[in-house]
Write a protein that binds this DNA or RNA. Structure first.
Lengths: 194, 194
DNA sequence: TTAAAAACTAACTGACCAGTCAGTTATTCT
DNA sequence: AGAATAACTGACTGGTCAGTTAGTTTTTAA
């Protein structure tokens, strides 16, 4: 792995666990066994380093989802919805740093003044909402899901799973313990019982 | 209002909008028209100031909810649930600073090493969950709500509304636009249709 | 009235940190 | 080989910030 990639990886971990302000360039340098000057050779500023991190997280998330759905077949929309939610939770537990980073306030603060940052965040959240929406729409087509607004319901589902993951990352309560209830709730809320 | 209360109020606003690290004691001092030394006369450290802020936010939230439910009557558990959710959203929009503060990572990070901080956060979230749980349990008693685990479902509902508020505060999408869908979803998910 | 206590001030300190720069080492290409 | 470029280094700088302190003003109470 190149030194630049190493720096990016270390920065992802540090920004995710300690936050932007509480991560010093010296720390990133130390973790990668480089001089602090080297980081500024590869990245013009701390902010640019953060944007690179966010960009790579975005790429990672989009890639993971496209790979997961590439050759997946679902019996119906409801099943697709449930499996999408499961995959989201699985991803959140296997790529903790990504979600920790997204649950910090800094990216959203930066997005207010930096269009590129805003774009990354929108790409990420649209990816999530799009998948849930697609499942809901498909479910309505195949009659596995009741009549509802696919987009808005997708946003609500994202709010729920994202909320669960956030509470877990904040050590407030455990996501795993809620899994069965979550799936049951989604079924009660969306399934078409005829 | 005493100078100490003024400092607390300014600190709440600054910690909520800029975060812990991005708020300097000089800034707090400037906003309250005092010397920075005065803050250290009233609060031993920046961390203690933050804890005082969190404590007052906790008191505020508990007070608001106990006041709202003091002399409220509900037709049944389902109605209570819906109105609790509505009140949560109302509070989040009228006391923005409180929820901005709770949507930052710093309090949860501090909670890991500071039991008092952890206690404040638990009190706040238990307050929320308890109310939803009480509504669900009442709804099961009066048959307005289906069979489900009240505690876990209450947590899921909190995840959803908290997620919505967070997305709104992060400027990702608007809570108001989802309100009708949220109530409809809660009804589909919890209402007992006989 | 006055003395003690509480509240407040502003200059100061030491630590830290993002970013620079002048110079060194490694790589590539002819 | 040797020149040119890319990658890397680490000491240094200017600025910021939490917290201190010695001294001043205000309040309290006897």
């Amino acid at each position: 792995m190149s030194k630049k990639e190493n720096i990016l990886k270390a920065a992802t971990l540090l920004f995710a666990t300690n936050g932007f302000k509480d991560t010093s360039m010296t720390e990133v340098a130390h973790m990668t066994g480089t001089a602090s000057g080297t980081i500024f050779y590869h990245f013009t500023s701390k902010e640019e380093l953060f944007l690179s991190v966010l960009s790579s997280v975005k790429d990672g998330i989009l890639e993971e989802f496209s790979q997961y759905f590439r050759d997946k077949e679902f019996a119906n929309g409801l099943e697709m919805l449930e499996e999408s939610v499961s995959f989201y939770l699985y991803l959140a537990s296997s790529k903790t740093e990504w979600f920790l980073l997204l649950h910090r306030y800094y990216p959203y603060k930066l997005a207010k003044e930096n269009p590129a940052c805003r774009r990354f965040l929108e790409d990420i959240y649209n990816c999530f909402v799009d998948i849930f929406e697609k499942a809901l729409a498909q479910g309505q087509a195949d009659a596995s899901i009741v009549k509802l607004s696919p987009r808005k319901t997708a946003m609500l589902i994202l709010s729920t799973v994202d909320g669960i993951v956030r509470f877990k990352n904040c050590n407030l309560y455990d996501a795993g313990a809620l899994y069965n209830e979550l799936i049951a709730t989604i079924r009660r809320m969306a399934a078409n019982q005829n």
